Computed example of a mutant assay.
Amino acid sequence: MDLQVLRSFQAVAEGATVTDAAAEAHITQPALSRALNRLEKEAGAELLQRVGRVLQLTPAGRVFKEYVDSVLDSYDRGLRAVAEVVDPDAGVVSVAFLHTLGTWLVPRLVTGFRESAPKVRFELHQDGEIGLVQHLLDSTADLTITSKDPGHPLIAWRRLLVEPLWLAVPARHRMAQRQRVRLAEVAGDPFIVLKTGYGLRSVTETLCRQAGFTPVVGFEGEEVETLRGLVAAGLGVSLIPASSGTTAGEGNPLLPIRYLEVTDVDAARDIGVACLASRTLPPVPRRFMDHALSATADSRGPLAPGV
């Protein structure tokens, strides 16, 4: 069976039209239709059925697609491995990462790695915690850089660093002239948080519970910079990663914000790198993972019990 037919079947199964899949394969639409029919004859079952104007997988097609995905993924990884044997300094690293890490950690790691491997290309994806897990399970990323261990049986996670969190308050907030604060002291304030599914949201809720309260959500955003802007506007308080280089009490002069150290709970989050436990990483992604662990070796802090 031609691998291109399997790729076309995969594309149609994932929502592409036969016309678009044929164009991608550089063949005519009737030719691709005939090829898909031959594939169904070889499989001995109807794999696709027309529902309205689109083709959808049959139950047999869903089972078959799992194996097609595995075959194509193995073949593509084989091509990558051969290319990296031929030229060890080239290759591709596919990394998915949290939105909040795209302004500092990921650029720092990529820049440092490319100093010794300038020919390596990066495919980068941003997502929330749930999406990062799916990137690994779907093999659309070699590695993810995320916060806490996802706790998935198929995923191996290693800590890179411990990132402090500050409590950001408006410049005119009643606590703004202080350097430190107990999180419980702002239990009645509205919290500006990221949407559900983002790691920082779950960390915020966990820390508030540890401080003895459930946060009142004033706004849900998708970017940390949005949280900063709304805190500056006086709409609430927020737990903000200290990754931007801010220190307690200091803020961006363009934003009237104060950053306070939290003293009653351990206001920090783990940042780690994850990959599929059962998959052998290609050489270049493996080297990048080793680089990430080495580059952050002094920033990990003590391991929690059982980690």
Rank of each mutant, 00 (worst) to 15 (best):
138 D>L: 13
210 Q>A: 14
11 A>T: 01
103 T>K: 10
305 P>C: 11
16 A>T: 00
206 T>F: 07
17 T>H: 00
28 T>C: 08
229 G>M: 10
19 T>E: 13
133 V>R: 13
79 L>S: 03
153 P>Q: 12
103 T>P: 01
154 L>H: 05
50 R>W: 06
285 P>C: 06
13 A>W: 09
23 A>T: 03
14 E>W: 07
3 L>C: 03
242 A>N: 11
112 G>L: 14
199 G>R: 08
240 I>S: 04
36 L>Y: 01
141 A>R: 06
164 P>W: 07
52 G>T: 06
173 H>F: 09
236 G>D: 05
18 V>D: 12
56 Q>K: 14
44 G>Q: 04
150 P>N: 06
277 A>S: 14
75 Y>R: 15
96 A>M: 04
209 R>H: 08
65 K>R: 15
125 H>N: 02
81 A>S: 07
180 R>H: 13
273 V>S: 06
36 L>S: 02
174 R>Q: 06
34 R>E: 11
266 D>S: 12
75 Y>F: 10
127 D>L: 00
264 D>F: 11
22 A>L: 13
250 E>C: 05
123 E>C: 00
94 S>I: 00
172 R>F: 04
292 A>G: 04
105 L>W: 12
173 H>Y: 09
298 D>K: 07
6 L>R: 03
87 D>Q: 08
142 D>A: 08
182 R>P: 03
5 V>M: 10
4 Q>S: 12
56 Q>P: 01
155 I>L: 04
132 L>S: 09
226 T>S: 08
229 G>T: 12
264 D>P: 08
103 T>M: 01
122 F>L: 05
160 L>Q: 04
9 F>R: 00
288 F>L: 05
100 T>C: 09
222 E>D: 04
112 G>E: 05
210 Q>F: 01
298 D>Y: 00
105 L>R: 10
117 A>Y: 15
210 Q>E: 13
57 L>P: 02
295 A>I: 09
